[in-house]
Design a protein around this nucleic acid. Structure first.
Lengths: 345, 345
DNA sequence: CTGAAAGCGCTTACAG
DNA sequence: CTGAAAGCGCTTACAG
């Protein structure tokens, strides 16, 4: 950087013929300064190309206007899921609109590493709040944040006994219920739900909604209705191959993520089954994959951008007003496509 | 946050019976402090649960140990490409290892918005350097960074006349050359290159390598060999449909991204063509898509994580040592798969 | 090897 | 409506 001497509040004050205090008040929009003075000072700031030093501000009023963002772990996990970039995009846009910066919390592998990274950020006064893009069962980061009563919010739903849990989420029980009911109404009654990580709250909630719809339709629910593996195509593919066995008489698959649905669909087609004539397929996340693949897949749009946006509002609300334990529900939409439509059983 | 009074350097000093200066020197590892004093101070810090205030440090030595990260624009663009999370992962890991934080530069839509966001970060002294994950032709952000001689680095290659352009990239000319030569040697000689954004340097370099390989094999190169659209599956699909026309006699496709290859392959298969017997397909980025789809696609691994890592090293080198215009080449690997193998023409 | 003092650039009660 | 002064929590020449 060219070593131009930094222009400070003092320089502006001198040029405008006022005190630094006055300039400071103009910057922060203090209403007690006369209009003439305000205008004069602003003109001087522009003339000199003055920009307030954010670091000095932070130190003086002990607030950084920065949110620490904890992203999903590693590239293998949700980072590669299309959900992530969309949510991130919403987070960046909203925080920027609300005058907050986003600092990434680096996560080295394990959970304790993440907790330590969060601790370090907080202790160093770098952030005013924390935003967790995912949470797991008995999340240690959340336990820590609760223990120090530091402002935070989460995308997803609480597990249990987490008092400060500000969170933005879809109504996953309702969404799974609606999707399952839709399949049943179309005549697909031998359904199976395939999913990743059973330890994730989202999975458990969708299972609940799925079960509720079955039982309401008089279909007895058993554990055989659930196949749980990982959130990847391979898992979907393997489950698809298992479902193929005609003895199972499965006629409908509900996947909790499009990559699973895609993998399963691939396996079904390879085995010579038709979609939806032999087996109908539906899913969550409404990703490009679901829209563009050979047989477009019926899928639930969960609005990741909105989830990101609301979670940012929640942390900031938590920082500014001490809000704790608040819940924001983001609507979802069911998109019906060829994988379940155009055929009546 | 519980209003516990912050523990400062003064508190530690008092407890250890030394001056704040000494505590400060212990923190920064100043070698002129005696071992006994150092140990005593450290013990006190631990006992009191002291953590240095990063903001105050930054203000005192005017350096934030923070890198401003400019991500690809919007969710539509490269953000959804698997390249992105992998590169990001490398960036986070490396910066954390090297003691730097990552602050996201929020990008509202257009290019000027991005430049302004970068300016704001720099003017507010929030960052010591800037890392650009992508660059376009005549990039305004780069022009600005050059004009103020602020430390930065880029993933990708310079366009022209960009003096400070520290960058990490693959040898894209060589990679395209090698991939094309491989296809030619397999007997596929009526090749077409399909790509997104011609304004991107990466596209232009790959075209160069492609052309070089053709010409060395005595295949006259014309503009008909190149199809340029967007970096999405639809583009690939449409090109795949066009290629289908037997009059073209195309027997090989080289895509510059797996989503393009995937789209094209879908179109070919739909049209009843066989891969690779009728048309061989190869690509770049070695994404899950290329590895796992029906017919695994031959693809070049560009090592996004390494690109992220090296670009971080470059900004930091630029911050610390004033390095400018340095280039780091990250190796690539060709992965041969069914879309070009197991068949000899 | 260690300390007193000034300074980083802002904010904000307090006083007028 | 405005200013002088103290303070945010560190760092670092300077002096010893």
């Amino acid at each position: 950087m060219k070593e131009i001497k930094r222009i400070t509040i003092r320089d502006v004050a001198r040029m405008a013929g006022v005190s630094p205090s006055t300039v400071s008040r103009v910057i922060s929009g203090n209403p007690r300064i006369s209009i003439e003075t305000t205008e004069r000072v602003i003109k001087c700031m522009e003339k000199m190309g003055y920009h307030p030093n954010a670091i000095a501000r932070s130190l003086a009023n002990s607030s950084s206007s920065t949110i620490g963002l904890v992203m999903p772990q590693g590239p293998g996990e949700a980072l590669s899921n299309p959900f992530f970039p969309e949510a991130l995009s919403g987070i960046i846009r909203t925080s920027s609109e609300m005058g907050y910066d986003i600092l990434l919390v680096s996560h080295h592998g394990d959970e304790d590493g993440q907790v330590n990274a969060i601790k370090a950020m907080i202790n160093a006064s770098k952030v005013d709040g924390i935003l967790l893009m995912t949470s797991r069962k008995d999340d240690k980061s959340i336990a820590y944040l609760d223990s120090v009563d530091f402002p935070y919010s989460v995308i997803g739903s609480p597990d249990n006994g987490q008092p400060s849990f500000n969170h933005a989420d879809n109504d996953n029980i309702m969404a799974a219920y609606e999707l399952t009911s839709y399949m049943i109404n179309k005549g697909f009654r031998r359904l199976v739900l395939i999913s990743g990580g059973k330890e994730l709250t989202v999975t458990r909630m969708r299972i609940k909604g799925f079960r509720k719809a079955l039982e309401e339709s008089g279909i007895p629910y058993t554990d055989d209705h659930i196949l749980v593996g990982k959130f990847d195509e391979e898992t979907g593919y393997n489950f698809g191959k298992r479902i193929y066995d005609p003895a199972n008489k499965i006629d409908g698959i509900i996947a909790t993520d499009d990559v699973l649905a895609f993998g399963a669909a691939t396996a079904l087609l390879e085995s010579g089954l038709r979609i939806p004539e032999d087996v109908a397929v539906s899913s969550f996340n409404n990703s490009v994959l679901s829209r563009r693949c050979n047989i477009p897949i019926t899928s639930i749009e969960i609005n990741p951008g909105r989830l990101g946006e609301e979670s940012v509002r929640l942390v900031i609300d938590s920082i500014l007003n001490g809000t704790r334990g608040k819940r924001v529900i983001v609507p979802y939409q069911l998109h019906k496509r060829a994988s379940t439509e155009g055929f009546t059983k």
